[in-house]
Simulated scan of single mutants.
Amino acid sequence: MIDSPASAMDIPHHEPPVTLRSQTAAIEAVEDIVYGSTAGIVGKYIEYPFDTVKVRLQSQPDNLPLRYKGPIDCFRQSLKADGFVGLYRGITAPLVGAAAETSSLFFFERLGRELIYSSGLVSRDQFLSLPTLYFTGAFSGFFTSYVLTPIELVKCKIQAPASADGSAPPPLKPGAVIRDVYRHHGIKGFWHGQMGTLIRESGGSAAWFGGKETVTKMFHALNARTVNTKAEKDTLAAQPLPLWQQALAGASAGVSYNFLFFPADTIKSRLQTMAIGESVKDRTFLKEGIAIWKRYGAAGLYRGCGITCLRSAPSSAFIFMVFDGLKTFLPMQ
């Protein structure tokens, strides 16, 4: 689980006193929450129209002809029906969700690192290997999924409200959705679709953090070839990557996150766009997945994947650049 210093991505640091370490950890936790929230909000404004299209493509009912032929047709019909503002329908809840999701991802990822250090498997003056960083990403996604599922449920019901005849019902408001879900399904109803979120976030976050660090490490290795002395290599390794390399690392992370576990997200969206009040007993994650596979095959599970990967590349690039930039230039300690 340990890389040699020459292949490590983190800057080494020695074991500080317990009190100082606790204070530093508290400050870093606040940074994760504040800067993660800011980065998440920026990313959500970039990706939200694409996310609306994705949810509408995923949630088309089986008992009716497909309303949208593909992402472009969905964009066209959505713009014709509601205008550009309609693509941002229900963004209030997702902005809260984006802040909660991104800050939780960075917070729990750091908690995962602390768990590794505290276990004694790796001392704090050593470096975490890539497999370990994939683990901390999965650890982060697992816990973040429980924060995210209720927020995504409200978002999905606003983006693609269910209608018996397939027509577009009036826009829903977050408060009305929350009241109706609680009235019909209780507190438990807000975690409908949790299995899909858990699979997507655990696997996807491993790919998100691990993929970003893998590409970052690759760029550091490539950049080191341009200098000759060890001192120059050490200086270069301690500096942030050029912006275009940071952007590519973040973009690759976003595409990896979405593509690898997209079927779980499709099933989750289908479950979360059910009409409020409809019985959820027979709509389990496994049954929904089998039903989609039997009717549409793999294409049904990946419906909307292209548009999702397209929007996730710039969104993730900006999230990591904003987060890393704030941590670098506006440290709280």
Rank of each mutant, 00 (worst) to 15 (best):
I2D: 11
A6P: 05
S22Y: 10
S22Q: 14
S22C: 10
T24H: 13
A29H: 12
V30S: 10
V30G: 06
E31A: 12
A39M: 04
G43M: 03
I46W: 01
F50I: 03
V55I: 14
Q60W: 05
D62R: 10
P65V: 07
D73V: 10
G90F: 08
T92Y: 09
L95P: 09
S103I: 09
L105Q: 10
L111Y: 07
G112K: 00
I116S: 03
S119W: 04
V122C: 05
S123K: 14
Q126Y: 08
L128Y: 02
Y134T: 02
Y134F: 09
Y134C: 01
A138I: 05
F142I: 11
Y146S: 07
V147W: 01
T149C: 14
I151W: 00
V154K: 00
S163V: 11
D165M: 12
S167E: 14
L172G: 04
K173G: 08
R183Y: 04
H184Y: 12
H184I: 07
G186Y: 06
L198C: 12
L198R: 04
S202K: 04
A207R: 02
A207Y: 01
F209M: 04
G211W: 00
E213S: 08
E213T: 09
T214S: 14
V215N: 01
H220I: 05
A224E: 12
R225Y: 08
K230D: 13
T235H: 11
A238C: 07
P242R: 03
W244H: 06
W244C: 03
V255S: 04
S256R: 00
F259G: 05
F261E: 08
F261W: 14
P263I: 02
A264G: 12
K268S: 14
K268V: 09
T273L: 09
M274G: 10
I276Q: 02
G277W: 13
E278C: 14
E278D: 15
K281S: 15
K287A: 15
R295S: 14
C309H: 06
L310T: 04
A317W: 00
F323C: 02
K327P: 06
